[in-house]
Design a protein around this nucleic acid. Structure first.
Lengths: 189, 189
DNA sequence: CCGCCATTGTACCGTTCGGTACAATTCCAA
DNA sequence: TTGGAATTGTACCGAACGGTACAATGGCGG
């Protein structure tokens, strides 16, 4: 809790921004310090274990953020199609139409994957479970709901990769647009 | 061409391995040197611009490798289904069933994306074009072949992300298994 | 007004970073 | 055999790295 200017949440959000575009290895303490406006002292005061602590805090913050903005609406009552459309809309703004990188996809790389595997796996699992819940409500079997939910996350993450790699954000937009209908399509299409 | 032991190709392949699992920012000259058995002098002799040069060489090597192992078989004559199955098999061994990271997905992150955007975009484009060619042969319209081909790459890259993030390589295997049939499914399913 | 404690700036630690200089070595062509 | 080019080991550079020590500062409850 920096008394001067920023709340802890704001600090974490600025750390998030740096990790998103630099990755774990590429995010230096100097840049994290500049981005938050906190000196190294303060950074180590709030996050005693350095980058590891910061990254864990960022992931925890992301988890609650996703819980509120994404998973809760998915688990709420209402027509399945509407809930999936809401997810697509939220994701579209969250990733700025495919122009913003995914923190999860970024941390899944190499050694960082091992270091934060628990946190990463928990978030992915919650996401898949939330989508699967919608599909179960829509009448699909447990197994089919699960594999389709995994496929949804696969397509979202993959679309971010291809959109970034090809420079064509339209790939991400189109993927989001098709997703709800594809997920609810009759089985054995 | 190191005369002592390794061919240039072997050197590049060892550089590839390091970049794959460390990412660009995480790959230090020390590790690249150790992995190749070449001192920093030799590394800078063959790649005067340092990591940038090495990465570009790695991407060029990857491009020709994909050309031979993946794109050429896709563009060759034969039943569409068989060609797509061949791609799935090649990818399965290339990514060791989802356990090995994707160099492209790795470099698409943050600042490295800008630095190697041309090379990355070219590889993705060639990949999409090769798959689209199969789908055109299978009778799909140019537009549908294109979007389905993009979707194929999206699902492959996304499956690698989710498999790594969740620790369940099965996600990648299942995605590869479903892909050929999904791509060839009748339109408007 | 005081004292305390969270917070912070500054200076510094040893290490590693990417990169260079240069002399020694190796190699092959002549 | 020799000369020159390709190759390499070693030593080194300044900068930046992640991280720590500590003294000053500041606000706030008593």
């Amino acid at each position: 809790m920096p008394p001067a200017s920023l709340s802890r949440t704001e600090v974490i959000e600025r750390l998030t921004a740096v990790l998103r575009r630099r990755g774990f290895a590429g995010a230096s303490l100097a840049e994290l310090s500049k981005a938050t406006g906190l000196g190294k002292s303060s950074l180590y005061h709030y996050f005693p274990d350095g980058k590891d602590d910061m990254t864990r805090a960022v992931l925890a913050h992301l988890a609650t953020q996703l819980q509120q903005a994404l998973f809760a609406p998915l688990l709420a009552p209402g027509p399945a199609r509407r809930r999936l459309d809401a997810m697509a809309g939220t994701l579209d703004s969250f990733y700025r139409g495919g122009r913003e990188a995914c923190l999860l996809g970024n941390l899944v790389v190499g050694e960082t994957r091992d270091r934060f595997h628990g946190e990463l796996a928990a978030i992915f699992e919650a996401w898949v479970a939330a989508i699967a819940s919608v599909l179960r409500d829509a009448g699909f079997s447990r197994a089919l709901a699960r594999t389709r939910a995994e496929d949804a996350v696969v397509r979202i993450e993959g679309a971010l990769v291809l959109a970034a790699g090809s420079g064509q954000a339209a790939v991400f937009e189109r993927t989001l647009r098709q997703l709800p209908a594809d997920l609810l399509a009759p089985a054995k299409g």
